[in-house]
């Protein structure tokens, strides 16, 4: 029992006030949000992402190192729309940081800052696969939403750290201007894609399609989150041939065999698109993400 006495005493001694630091600690669930927060926050913030851009944030597993990060955070930025529902709630429970609990100023759900697509109306069932009632959560793949996200983050940073309001607003303007200029370049580069039918692996590119004017007519997955079967692939082969669909787009982390099979059967071009900042080497910020996506799409179209 002596041990316990010491443990309890140690516990009491360890109740020490947390020392404040100059930079706001911003923790994000994905690298895309981290990149935008960094662009807006500059040296006034210290940004960490809980998941790397190479992994599907929907299936991240809560790790102890995440608890430390959330525990110390001043601001937690989340994608929302059920994206992190499998791992964020227990993480928030373990992290015991009231500042970043939902409802407090330190918690910002960016899905509320953008118009969500793919909202489901009518009856919903899990027989439909992995569906999100509140809308499709892959909204960062529309550069116009990048501006909305940046703007929401800037307002929240201003609220939490009013002393640096000018710096945040200035960086937001720079970010918005750069993105606007770039959007014109990207749109011009992909002009040939306007109105074209495209197949995606997963329901994750509807915002990209919306931004650049192409149409996603089908997915390789028969239902969201359900792996393709021989029968579902055979049906796709027929559809691709009938409708002369020329392009298949997918994230780097999905299996390539189904796409390879469709390519061999129908000659459809496959573009593996980085879906997030950090998904591939050389994509360090939000602008570079779309540079890479546009380059991949152009390459696939020109082949």
């Amino acid at each position: 029992m002596n041990r316990l006495f010491y443990l309890l005493s140690a516990l009491l001694i360890l109740i020490s006030p947390q020392l404040g630091h100059a930079a706001l600690k911003v923790v994000t669930t994905t690298q895309d949000l981290a990149a935008i927060a960094q662009a807006v926050g500059g040296e006034q913030v210290q940004v960490q992402s809980l998941t790397p851009g190479t992994r599907d944030p929907h299936y991240a597993s809560a790790k102890p190192s995440m608890i430390r990060k959330v525990f110390r955070a001043d601001l937690l930025l989340v994608i929302g729309a059920d994206m992190e529902t499998g791992w964020l709630p227990p993480l928030l429970q373990s992290a015991r940081n009231n500042r970043v609990q939902p409802g407090n100023p330190g918690y910002l759900d960016l899905s509320a800052a953008v118009p969500l697509l793919g909202k489901l109306n009518g009856p919903m069932s899990r027989a439909m696969g992995d569906v999100h009632a509140s809308g499709n959560p892959h909204y960062w793949l529309d550069p116009r939403n990048g501006v909305r996200i940046a703007s929401a983050i800037a307002s929240r940073l201003t609220e939490l750290d009013p002393a640096n309001t000018d710096a945040y607003q200035q960086r937001l303007q720079t970010f918005t201007r750069t993105l606007n200029d770039k959007l014109a370049v990207w749109t011009a580069a992909l002009a040939a894609m306007k109105g074209k039918p495209v197949i995606a692996y997963h329901k994750s590119f509807i915002y990209l399609a919306d931004a650049f004017g192409f149409t996603i007519v089908d997915e390789v997955e028969p239902k969201p989150g359900i792996s393709p079967s021989a029968a579902s692939l055979a049906a796709l082969v027929t559809r691709i041939k009938d409708e002369k669909i020329a392009l298949l787009i997918m994230e780097p982390y999905y299996e390539r065999r189904s796409a390879q099979f469709l390519h061999e059967k129908t000659d459809i071009q496959v573009a593996v698109l980085p879906q997030s900042v950090g998904a591939q080497a050389g994509i360090g910020n939000y602008i570079e993400l779309f540079d890479a996506i546009v380059a991949e799409l152009k390459k696939a179209m020109d082949t």
């Binding site: 929302g80 709630p89 918690y107």
Partner: peptide
């Protein structure tokens, strides 16, 4: 840029 609407406490 639009101001962020009130955050609903979804989670």
């Amino acid at each position: 840029p639009q101001p962020a609407p009130e955050t609903p406490t979804a989670a």
